[in-house]
């Protein structure tokens, strides 16, 4: 069966030296939500821009329903763009300040010639606004007249206007007020249920990912280091970096403060990617082998892949706890 989206060994080098994305492969099924998590600079946002063809990969291919997007004609690419839409992080920059809400949400339809005439456009806009709890009176409002949450809803309607099969959502709620975030997450889930859209959900927030994702891919320094179904990822993460990320999530209650796996220092720069396993400079488990040899992203359990030489060798949690207890 053909996957909806297949990224194969994607690489993106900026300015000849910055290896922002350094060999990333993953696939997405119809109706699936894949979360791409990692810290700033890990390359997750660059991956989203590559998928949206906002920037061209240095190497590697992206196939949408089996078709290589890199070899498409302009016309074919325009058609595929109807199927892949996006929601951006910043609800303030993602809407043109000189367009009204009605024009913004119907823009994709107008660009693809699916809507003709002012009156028709206005009616469609009103219908679209109603689907996310806005009303007809908002049609002629300017973006600055909306709150952050409302603006993000406009962004979501715009993304769904063409009935896409895949939506790339790059940190869609992290710029919003906490009390508004859950509204927007619910809207994203309702829309998915309604339209059967797949999500590539990019986030640094593990708790939100746990709520929304079907599968999780963890990125570190331009590579996926772990890729697993949600349940097995959160119950038994196999890569020490995933484990550290999870242990760093703030507690949900003062009595549940976690035993931390403290990573040493900061992530290295993507200009100087360490030899061997790129995580070895900060890994509490690193051995000699890790400095020499880069571990492949290999299957360690059912559908659960991790790029670590010792992924199955030790029970991770106890091992890490030992190391951190004896550490400085």
């Amino acid at each position: 069966m053909t996957k909806l989206l297949e990224a194969n060994d994607l690489r993106k080098v900026f300015g000849g030296a910055v290896r922002a994305v350094d060999g990333v492969s993953f696939s997405l099924d119809e109706r699936e939500t894949l979360a791409l998590v990692g810290e700033s600079g890990c390359g997750k946002s660059t991956v989203s821009r590559l998928i949206l063809r906002l920037t061209d990969p240095t190497e590697g291919t992206i196939r949408f329903e089996g078709q290589d997007m890199g070899r498409m004609s302009q016309r074919a690419l325009k058609e595929v763009r109807r199927e892949i839409q996006f929601v951006f992080q910043d609800p303030f920059s993602s809407l043109d300040p000189r367009m009204t809400a009605g024009d913004i949400v119907t823009e994709p339809l107008a660009v693809h010639g699916l809507i003709k005439g002012r009156a028709k456009r206005r009616d469609t806009a009103t219908d679209l606004l109603k689907t996310v709890g806005l009303s007809a009176k908002h049609v002629n409002n300017w973006p600055r007249q909306f709150s952050g949450g409302q603006r993000q809803r406009l962004g979501i309607i715009r993304a769904f206007a063409l009935g896409p099969r895949l939506i790339v959502a790059d940190e869609p709620v992290s710029a919003l007020d906490v009390s508004v975030r859950s509204q927007v997450i619910n809207i994203l889930q309702d829309m998915q249920e309604d339209k059967g859209t797949a999500y590539l959900f990019i986030s640094h927030d593990m708790a939100t990912v746990k709520h929304i994702a079907d599968r999780v891919a963890v990125m570190y320094l331009g590579k996926i280091v772990e890729l697993a179904p949600k349940s097995s990822f959160f119950s038994a993460p196999q890569h020490p970096y995933s484990e550290a990320l999870l242990s760093a999530v703030p507690a949900s209650h003062p009595d549940k403060r976690r035993e931390r796996i403290l990573l040493q220092g900061d992530p290295p720069s993507p200009v100087n990617i360490p030899s061997g396993c790129r995580f070895h400079t900060r890994c509490p488990l690193a051995q000699e082998l890790c400095k020499r040899e880069e571990p492949p992203l290999a299957q360690v359990a059912d559908n659960h892949a991790a790029a670590c030489h010792f992924a199955q060798a030790w029970p991770m949690r106890s091992r890490v706890a030992d190391t951190s207890a004896s550490g400085p």
Binding site: V180, S182, S252
Partner: peptide, 23 residues
């Protein structure tokens, strides 16, 4: 606010409890 904030310990649920309206 506490209910609307997703946490790792939170039980699986379809929808997050949300506060209506905007700040």
């Amino acid at each position: 606010l506490l209910n609307a904030t997703p946490t790792l310990e939170m039980a699986e649920q379809r929808r997050l409890p949300a506060i209506g309206g905007a700040v």
